[in-house]
Amino acid sequence: MNEVLQYTIQGLAAGSFYALSALGLAIIFGVLGVVNFAHGACYMLGAVVAAVLLDTVGLGFWPALLVVPLIMFAFGVLIERTLVRWLLALDPLYNFLLTFGLTLLLVDLVKRRYGVSGLPYERPDVLRGQIELGALRLPTYQVFVFVFSLLVCVLVWMLMTRTRIGMIVRASTERSDLAQALGINVGRWVTPVFGFGIALAGLAGVLAAPFRAITADMGSNFIIILFAVVVIGGLGSILGAVVAGFLVGLVEAFGQAYAPTFAQILIFVLMAVVVLVRPAGLFGREETAR
């Protein structure tokens, strides 16, 4: 019983990284129609920037949760303005290839500058140790990661559902040309939305920093799982990205516990089943799956 709860919180903690990143990926795909292959690299950069800021200017974990996403937002804006923007009018494949190339570039730059063995990172003292509830012991940090990520997802969800910005983003996500015809300047939202999506990946990276090896390659496997998450949740579906993120985390944890050899395959089996049964994903609408 205790183990099952442990696996659950481990799955939810791992799922948090997927949910936050997939949320960013989904928003970017929705508004720009760009499948951002560099999302894994941005997750990696989030962790690397957190580690470097800790090492160089002593920026701790708590401020990093705010500062690093801001830096990543700026980075996203830069990438959108200088590169992605020019290919938006063309076949989406061009931006997929661009972001793929960007991934290789970022990974190699980090390798060149910081080596391959990774960077050290310490989590703050309050997040160490275990939360004890009777016989149950749950690692404080994992509980924190899950609660914090869930909170961010809820905030993003509220931003998307309760504000005019969210309304515009949802409308642009669903049918961009129609939104234009209704007087919405979709282009004006493209840059901040791209930056916001990148910032979410960066935030996932900061959260992963105390818990995962911070290496140039940490995003390489991650992006593959992330694509599975987005497909399961439904391309461009915001709720789908979050639910599928946590779901995939749980599948991974329980897979590792009860069928370790198949742990990773299970995720892709789940993806295949979802695609067969609901081609648009769990929360996707048919028209967004065109």
Partner: peptide, 21 residues
Amino acid sequence: HKRARAGLGWVQDDRGVYASL
């Protein structure tokens, strides 16, 4: 979007109602 703001109002043939709104 500027034409819309100039006063053209658009009703699409499939109605163009947003499902997510």
